[in-house]
């Protein structure tokens, strides 16, 4: 077990290291000079050069890479070229929008998907199942940003129930801030819920076919109890795996949704930074997202190892 997890951990770390090389190398190819961009069309050549020196852009590639990776180990992601504040500070300011948004969407999609999936599995092949699965089929096909546009139109422009975009900040109080996140999280959650509902349904159907369920039924346990207490618990593993994967996806999915709702989250920051060639910010965010996904995958591996003892010795 320890050896297995040790190996997974090592692989995770190696992935991060290779990812850092890839990210750094790719972004260094990016054309465009952040110094020139900052000073604009009328700037003189020596003013641009002076700023390049100030930003540390005139140093060699390797020293810059080493300094960057070294810094990240102590959570120092460097200083933003344009904002000239520590990158980690920028990320923190934006993460307090993106992370709650991703978590809200995950909660919402779970809250929709599990009941629908269980409901459909319990009524397999009947009209209710067909309707639920047709709806989920549709949900999978809807682009979340288009759904977001419709939500804005109906709930913000027509009914004026919630703001159409923007974020008042947590300092404005929890409710106004959460209100600004309602539509974005619905837009993100619904297509994800459609996928999760299908996974839940098929995982349940698999379990329902197994012997211990038949035994439970034969013992005369009520249908509902069998379904919720026995079957669902055993079907949770694939569902949890998908949820784990979805968290990474949701964090990334916020990129487009944040643009629809002009939320000041990580997604907007990454777009802004790409346009301003504030590469060190882009590099920091990408590495953080990659690290999150690697960590979530590790947790999924860990949960598998705990549930399925065969894995502990198999590898």
């Amino acid at each position: 077990m320890t050896a297995y997890l040790g190996k997974r951990l090592l692989i995770g770390l190696a992935t991060l290291l290779v990812a850092s090389v890839v990210v750094f190398a790719i972004l260094e190819i990016l054309p465009g000079d952040p110094a020139r961009l900052m000073l604009g069309m009328n700037a003189t050549a020596d003013a641009v050069e002076a700023l390049r020196n100030e930003m540390g852009l005139n140093e060699g590639l390797l020293p810059r890479y080493l300094a960057w990776v070294g810094g990240m180990l102590s959570l120092d992601f460097g200083r933003s070229y344009t904002y000239s504040v520590p990158v980690i500070e920028l990320i923190r300011e934006r993460a307090i929008v993106s992370v709650p948004l991703a978590l809200m969407s995950l909660a919402l999609s779970t809250a929709i998907a599990i009941p629908v999936g269980v409901f459909a599995a319990a009524r397999r092949g009947r009209p209710a199942d067909t309707v639920a699965m047709a709806a989920s089929q549709l949900g999978v096909a809807v682009p979340n940003f288009w759904f977001a546009l419709l939500l804005v139109y109906v709930f913000a422009v027509w009914l004026r129930l919630v703001p159409a975009g923007g974020f008042p900040g947590w300092s404005a109080g929890a409710w106004p801030a959460l209100k600004a996140l309602i539509l974005p999280s619905i837009a993100l959650a619904v297509p994800q819920a459609a996928i999760l509902a299908r996974v839940t349904r098929s995982a349940l159907l698999d379990v329902l076919g197994e012997d211990f369920i038949r035994t439970a039924r034969a013992k005369g346990l009520p249908r509902g109890a069998v379904l919720w207490r026995h079957a669902l618990r055993n079907a949770m593993l694939p569902v949890l795996t998908i949820m784990g994967l979805q968290f990474g996806f949701l964090l990334a999915g916020t990129i487009i949704i944040e643009n629809v709702f002009s939320l000041p989250g990580l997604g907007r920051l990454i777009f802004q930074a790409l346009n301003q060639r504030d590469l060190i910010v882009v590099e920091g965010i990408v590495m953080l997202l990659v690290a999150t996904i690697v960590a979530v995958n590790l947790l999924v591996d860990l949960s598998y190892a705990i549930v399925d003892p065969r894995l502990r010795t198999a590898r």
Partner: peptide, 18 residues
């Protein structure tokens, strides 16, 4: 000075008095 990157968000913000 509130940063509102596009017209789609600016109009509702104005109409609602924010």
């Amino acid at each position: 000075f509130r940063i509102i990157p596009d017209a789609a968000a600016a109009v509702p913000a104005l109409l609602s008095g924010d």
